[in-house]
Simulated assay, not measured.
Amino acid sequence: MRIFLNRLRAVLALVLVFVSTVVHVTPLFVVAFVKACLRIRPIRQVCDWMLIGIAESWIAVNTAMLRLMTHTRITIEVEGQLRYDGRYLVLANHQTWTDIPILQAVFNRRIPFLRFFLKSQLFWVPLLGLAWWALDFPFMKRYSKETLAKHPELAGRDIEATRRACEKFRHIPVSVMNFVEGTRLTPAKHRKQESPYLYLLRPKAGGVAFVINALGDALQSVLDVTIVYPGGRSTMQDLFGDRIPEVRVHIRELPIPEALKNGSYESDPAVREQAQAWINGLWEEKDRRIAGMRTPAQPPRRPSPFG
């Protein structure tokens, strides 16, 4: 009976999320169409405001449904201040697709709307791909070494796409999200990389340094986010099936190194070395923090968005 109820709960949660998606994506597409057709700046600004409002409502409704349908508790610890009108680069470890709804629940309407760098293939996800495009999520097309060897003219196109995406964010409050490891953590990937960290993959400094350089003073600070599942690595099915008792999230606000704002990661070896040392230092601290956050469940330090 318990298994049956959990499966029923998971199906019902998925249905409710799907209905919420359709309800919110429909007006979002209408506003996006108006924005694309009318190139008048004041109208486009109003459309941007409306698009963000719809997206934040979408996240709030999904979070409320998960709060009602599951017993998952999010424990949050914040070192610093979160401002809705801030300009942040958000860096986090990445274990599972569950990280995304967790981050959205934690940050929704506390900081500017989170925008993720997405693989170009995700544009074709039904409903969501167009929604992400309408919300100015940056789509990145990555090329393998073999492809670049055959077509050297493609080199640098992903970097240029990042630069164009960042230009849109220079004049508005923004939260640019970056999973620094570049992929989700699995035991196989950890072994293949021979990662020096117990709970993390090797961080990739290039993308972080490039975003900082492209946005410059448009960024206020870095939000260093650590996500831990004390019960073990979990999936979206576990979330909808009410099999995640607790998620712990630690957030700390950090200054951005000045050298990364003004220097070139690609052409200046000194800047490249400093960026890599900075990111590696963050990851060493994060690895130690995760070890401490994996202890048995404790009462929440702050009310959870999931209850």
Rank of each mutant, 00 (worst) to 15 (best):
P257L: 07
G206S: 15
G206I: 01
W278M: 01
F240H: 07
T186W: 01
P257F: 13
E285P: 08
A291S: 14
A205R: 00
A209L: 01
S264I: 08
A297I: 11
Q274W: 11
V211H: 07
E258K: 12
V211A: 03
Y199L: 10
K192G: 09
G232L: 03
D217Y: 15
G207K: 08
P245H: 07
H190T: 03
R233M: 06
L260W: 00
E284R: 13
G206F: 12
V247P: 00
E284A: 15
G206N: 10
F210V: 13
R184T: 05
G241D: 12
P296W: 13
G232I: 10
Q274E: 15
W278P: 01
Q193E: 15
P196S: 04
Y199G: 03
Y199P: 10
P255R: 03
L185R: 05
A209N: 14
L185G: 13
A205S: 13
D238V: 06
A297L: 09
T295I: 08
I244P: 00
D238Q: 06
S267H: 13
G263K: 11
Q237P: 04
A291M: 10
H250S: 08
N262R: 12
I212C: 12
Q274T: 13
K192P: 06
D217W: 14
G207W: 05
Q193S: 12
L239H: 10
S221M: 09
Y199W: 15
Y265I: 05
G263C: 09
A275K: 02
R272Y: 08
K261E: 01
G231I: 05
I279Y: 05
V225W: 06
G182R: 03
R248C: 04
P269E: 04
Q276A: 08
N280V: 04
V222I: 14
R248K: 07
G207A: 08
V247K: 00
F240A: 07
P255M: 02
I256K: 04
S195H: 11
H190V: 08
V228C: 01
I244E: 00
T235E: 00
A291G: 13
H250K: 11
P203F: 10
G263F: 09
R294V: 06
F240C: 09
A188L: 11
Q276V: 15
V249S: 06
R252I: 01
I251W: 03
G292Y: 01
A259W: 09
N280F: 02
E246Y: 12
I256E: 06
Q274K: 07
D287G: 06
G216W: 05
I244H: 00
E266L: 09
A205Q: 00
L239I: 03
G241K: 00
V211M: 15
D242A: 11
N262G: 08
V228P: 12
P257S: 04
I256M: 01
K204H: 12
G231A: 11
M293A: 06
G292F: 03
E258T: 14
H190N: 10
E285G: 15
A218I: 07
V222T: 08
K189A: 01
L223A: 04
G241S: 09
R272M: 02
A209Q: 03
I256L: 07
G232N: 10
E284D: 10
G206W: 00
R294H: 02
N213A: 10
N262L: 09
A188E: 15
E273C: 07
Q274S: 14
P203N: 03
Y197G: 10
R202A: 06
D238H: 01
L215T: 11
A270T: 07
Q237W: 14
I279V: 00
R272Q: 14
P269M: 10
Y265F: 14
